[in-house]
Structure formats: C-alpha cells, structure tokens
Write a protein that binds this DNA or RNA. Structure first.
Lengths: 90, 90
DNA sequence: CAATGTTACGATACACGTAATCATA
DNA sequence: TATGATTACGTGTATCGTAACATTG
C-alpha cells in the first residue's frame, strides 16, 4: 500500500471512470488499473464494481473511502506543516 | 514522500540510532540513511541532528513527528478497517 | 581509534507505458 | 460495435544492499 494508490482511488471515486481518473493522475489507464488492483488485493476485496460503461464504489469501497481520505489528509497536513515551519507567518 | 520513509523516521526517533532503526525496519543502515535524507530534502530541512555517537530530533523533527505519527496511524486504521470488514465481529 | 552515519556504485526488482485483448451497454 | 477496463510484456528508473569512506566522541 502506498499513498499514490490511495490518491488513485480518490480520483476514480470522484470521476466514476478509470480513464478520467488516469488523466487526473497524470498516468495511463493500465497503470492506474494495475495499481488499484494491487491495492484491492492487499485490502482483501474490490473497491469498485466495474462494467465497461460505469464504475461505482462497492460497499467495501464506500467503507474504505473515508479512511483513505483521512490518510491523504494527514499527509497533506504534514506537508503543509513542513512548509509553514520554514515560512512562518510573521 | 512515502509511508516507508515515515516509518523509518519513527524508528529512528524511538531508538535515537540509525543502525538500530535499520534493524527494526528490516533494512540496512545505508538504505535507511538515504531514505531519510530524501525525505528531509522533500520536507525542506533536517529532521535529525547526527553525530557519530548520538542522533536526536531537531526542532523541525519535533514539529513533524506528531504529523508523521498521525499519518501512519490513519494508514493503520485503514488496514484494520479493511480487515474488520471481511472478518466482522458476530 | 572504535562506533556510527554517509557516499559510491552495481544489481535487482518494480513501476510505468505501449500494444493487444476482453467485456458490455 | 464502440467505449472503456484488463492483460501481456518490454524498458527504464528507483530501490536496495555491499563495500569503501568520513566523522566524531
């Protein structure tokens, strides 16, 4: 599991599409597809239900999404805090 | 920035030693040293003050540590939630 | 000078993209 | 059958470990 995979999940959930999520992520569709499959294997279940015309979160995906967002949010706060430390508000 | 680097930081902070942290992390000292240097570059400052006999957190490191722990904690909760979803308590 | 962190460098593995394939609305 | 996801596969890069080096208490 890594942070990039989590960001991919967010983008897929937001766009309901692997191809559009790939654009958002500056990656190709296969790269994103593989990366998410790998994460799904690690988490023990599918996060998305795919058909050729639609992508939607599974119940498992719904359950994981808030946790995933929280983890990415923590990362963002960490980066912001690092930046703020070196550029303090006077 | 990745989760492994964050875990390395925790181990170094806990042991006050790169070599002991490397053991905890199942990595070699150079690997850990490089990985942390890379993170420090990305965050814009040294997290640890090194001498040959001691390693201690810098003020910047002190400031980042809680954020780092929080991010790793979020990841742990995500993994636990995934496990719990497939092994619900009856 | 002994213990510990860093640098250099080569090998291996992994991530990524291209191309081809599969699936379904 | 056209759109969009997956699989196959080769390549380039990044990660990791070994060995050599630097540093300092």
């Amino acid at each position: 599991m890594n942070l990039k995979q989590l960001q991919f999940v967010i983008h897929v959930a937001e766009t309901c599409s692997f191809s559009r999520a790939a654009e958002l992520s500056f990656a190709t569709q296969p790269t994103l597809s593989n990366s998410i499959s790998q994460l799904e294997d690690e988490l023990g279940g599918r996060l998305f239900k795919r058909t050729t015309r639609s992508v939607e979160l599974t119940p498992f995906g719904e359950a994981m999404l808030p946790r995933i967002k929280e983890t990415l949010h923590s990362r963002d706060e960490l980066l912001q805090a690092a930046h703020a430390f070196h550029n303090p508000v006077h």
